[in-house]
């Protein structure tokens, strides 16, 4: 089976810090892929390099067989991206923003209108009306960002922390949409440090720490009969309280 996203030997250095130290990644088409890691593990850096936002120091990335850095237009057309900690063009209203993304992707205006209306309805953003995205709440911003990523019906969705700062109701809605998208033949890769979400959604998991992949495989392979959280803490090298320290608590 062809990989929806494949990376070989990705390296990124920021000044003196090595953020990503040679990552190989294979995201099977049709999979729901979770990229787990503690803060600062290199998740955002990896995903940014995978979608063409950040030039890697070394390594190559392919989206459905198209090299992101040497054949960007083909690769990018197949991609939908929700970056984290990145502003949207937030001085537009929700509908305007969707129209902008749709036209940038070369979509037909009639299709944009129809899909934008549906997306705004489903994501409960239609009531925001002419409110500018900059005045949206954090959860609404995530939702409109997801809508922008979905609008052109990409084959691969790359989502950076899609559940960060999202309330439970919106999170359930986003989960629902993503599951439907995967069921329809799409591929999702997303980063998170919330075990429950990953455990509930993902078919494949990679655990990232210190810029390198520590464990990778299907969810069951990685778990090996234990809870994902236990595996994660063990791999990342966090400590579990023994009861000796902090006795004064």
């Amino acid at each position: 089976m062809e990989s929806a996203l494949a990376a070989r030997g990705l390296v990124k250095r920021f000044e003196t810090v090595v953020a990503v130290a040679g990552i190989d990644l294979d995201v099977p088409a049709g999979s729901f892929y979770g990229l787990l890691g503690p803060n600062g593990a290199g998740k955002t850096t990896t995903l940014s390099m995978a979608v063409g936002l950040l030039r890697p120091d070394a390594g190559r990335v392919w989206v459905l067989g198209h090299d992101v850095w040497s054949d960007p237009s083909e690769a990018k057309a197949l991609l939908g991206v929700l970056p984290d900690g990145v502003r949207l063009f937030d001085r537009l209203t929700g509908a305007e923003l969707l129209a902008y993304h749709g036209l940038l992707r070369g979509m037909d205006p009639a299709v944009i209108d129809q899909r934008a209306r549906e997306l705004l309805d489903v994501l409960a953003l239609a009531s925001a009306g002419r409110t500018l995205v900059v005045d949206y709440s954090a959860g609404m911003k995530k939702k409109i960002g997801l809508a922008c990523a979905l609008l052109h019906a990409p084959r691969l969705l790359v989502l950076d922390e899609p559940f960060e700062a999202v309330d439970p109701v919106s999170a359930a809605l986003i989960r629902d949409i993503l599951q439907r998208y995967v069921a329809g033949g799409g591929t999702v890769i997303f980063s998170s440090h919330v075990m429950e979400v990953v455990e509930r959604l993902c078919s494949h998991v990679a655990i990232l720490a210190d810029g390198a992949i520590k464990r990778v495989g299907t969810l069951d392979e990685v778990r090996g009969g234990r809870s994902l959280e236990d595996v994660f803490v063990e791999v990342v090298g966090g400590r579990t309280a023994t009861g000796e320290e902090l006795a004064w608590l």
Partner: peptide, 26 residues
């Protein structure tokens, strides 16, 4: 913020009134 209901399709909202004559592309 003002919650005026939006009129027209998303694309029409994006394009300012004076530019309606432009082809709807990138």
């Amino acid at each position: 913020g003002p919650r005026k209901a939006a009129r027209g399709g998303a694309v029409d909202q994006l394009v300012p009134r004076g530019m309606r004559w432009m082809a709807r592309n990138r």
